[in-house]
Amino acid sequence: MKYSRLRNNLIAWNRKIHIYLGLFLLLFIWLFGLSGLLLNHHWEFSNSWVKRKVVSYEKMIKPGKEKDGKNMAREIADKLNLSGNIVNVRYSADSSVLDFILTKPGTRYDLSTKLRTCRVTIKETILDQWAAIKALHTMRNPTQKEMNDRHQPTLAYIWSFSIDVVSVGLIIICLGGWYLWYQAEKKRFYLGLISLTTGVILAAYILMF
């Protein structure tokens, strides 16, 4: 009796979590599903690089306090009111020019700063919405190797955290779905077993090859 009540409670809670978590993550799941398809195929409509718009301009900034390349790049970006991931920070051979790239979904800035004159040349590359969607899929925390020459803004860290939430959420939805299916009547259970086994065999085949 006690076991049966516990089981019913578990089913009810599991069902609620399955539904609400699925609804909460719906847009994130669709975004990652769509962007995954875009990344795996090279459809003409999503060839954003061909359709890019490039604008170049120059700006003057006040001399900064930072001496380290990455921090200096960040300071320059702040002064120009630009935000995004800072990558590829490098000095010219005589250390008079600092180059770096600043990226955010759909936009890329190539910045070249003449440190003596404080003149910044900005090449802004504007990409379409498909490039932005793909960039959201591949945006992640920096690896150990990238730590030293990459700066990531807070928003990108929040996005990386949302990737964790979606990943854990998807695993919970799948495991919860298995439990709900396990409670189904015999006929549905066996038919479901065929669907699950097909998926497992297909995935395991490549994994074990």
Binding site: V168, L170, I171, I173, T198, G199
Partner: peptide
């Protein structure tokens, strides 16, 4: 919903698990 969900669940677990690895060190 049941059959498509069960079929894709191993793929989703692979993608979700590997996304966690890719997102962290």
């Amino acid at each position: 919903h049941l059959h498509t969900g069960l079929f894709i669940s191993p793929f989703l677990i692979i993608f979700a698990g590997s996304a966690l690895i890719l997102n962290h060190n």
